[in-house]
Write a protein that binds this DNA or RNA. Structure first.
Length: 266
DNA sequence: ATGGCGTACACCGTACGA
């Protein structure tokens, strides 16, 4: 007989790790998450601030590039970037990182950090790339699901799942991030057994994870919920909470995204 | 009202984000 251990897993699009490192440090110290998936690090691997994070008590696995994209996973124990490309989907853009971490029970936790393409505008080349990327992601995650019971897929999905995840659904209708094809791609993951754990719990109305820098988006709560934590059914059944932490968005020079944290008794 | 702001790289503007 052993006590269940509360494991806290977070995702945060930091919009430049170099710029946000002080804020990340403060947030890690205050929040003490066990595992953190970062997106838009915009940091080549050679420049990754591994030493600074280690002084904060976190090991890191990372896959970055200059200027754009870049993902990283932080954990209390050493970890490795096991997969950094969707298998069979050639892409120079660093948007994916899969790693495996041990759980207190002795079981393994598979963590997949995603920075889903933005898509720019419906009908654009970048939109087509986003849909192709999402189709390849689905095929890969079906394989991952077959191999891992405890699987969490989290990150910046650049898709608001439902109208209640959008500050003004009428204004956004048909737009990138809410288009039917994007939502269908996300719904397909749910059909395959992933659970958006945020919606397992009662949440405040108008809960968002991203707000436009322009036009006082945050002050007016003009946002989208696009940063998601999807869990395999086995893991979702162990989820006891999922919250959006708006506090970092109130800082000077904030990221336009704010962290989302899920707690698992596992 | 398709702007608004922020980051990066490079150059004093452009690409991109969401």
């Amino acid at each position: 007989m052993y006590d269940d251990v509360a494991l806290r897993i977070a995702t945060w699009n930091v919009n430049s790790l170099r710029v946000r490192l002080p804020q990340l440090g403060e947030w890690l110290a205050a929040s003490q998450p066990d595992i953190v998936a970062l997106q838009e690090t915009k940091s080549p691997d050679a420049d990754f601030p591994a030493a600074a994070l280690q002084t904060l008590g976190y090991h890191a696995a990372f896959s970055g590039q200059k200027t754009y994209n870049g993902v990283a996973v932080l954990a209390r124990q050493p970890l490795a970037a096991e997969i950094v490309d969707i298998p069979g989907f050639t892409d120079p853009q660093r948007r994916v990182l899969a790693t495996t971490l041990p759980l207190a029970s002795g079981a393994a936790l598979r963590v997949i950090d995603l920075y889903v393409p933005n898509g720019q505008a419906v009908g654009s080349e970048k939109y087509a790339y986003k849909l192709e990327w999402l189709a390849a992601l689905r095929r890969w995650l079906q394989q991952e699901s077959a191999q891992h019971q405890n699987l969490v897929v989290l990150g910046d999905f650049n898709i608001a799942p439902e109208d209640r995840d959008v500050h003004d659904p009428k204004a956004w209708e048909g737009n990138v991030h809410v288009s039917p094809a994007e939502r269908a791609a996300l719904a397909a993951l749910v059909e395959d057994g992933f659970v958006d754990v945020f919606r397992q719990f009662e949440q405040p109305e108008r809960s968002f994870s991203w707000w436009d820098y322009r036009a006082a988006g945050f002050r007016r709560n003009h946002g989208l919920r696009i940063d998601l934590i999807l869990a395999s059914r086995t893991l979702a059944a162990r989820c006891t909470a999922c919250v959006i932490d708006r506090e970092p968005r109130t800082a000077e020079r904030p990221s336009d995204h704010t962290p989302v944290i899920a707690t698992f008794d596992i």
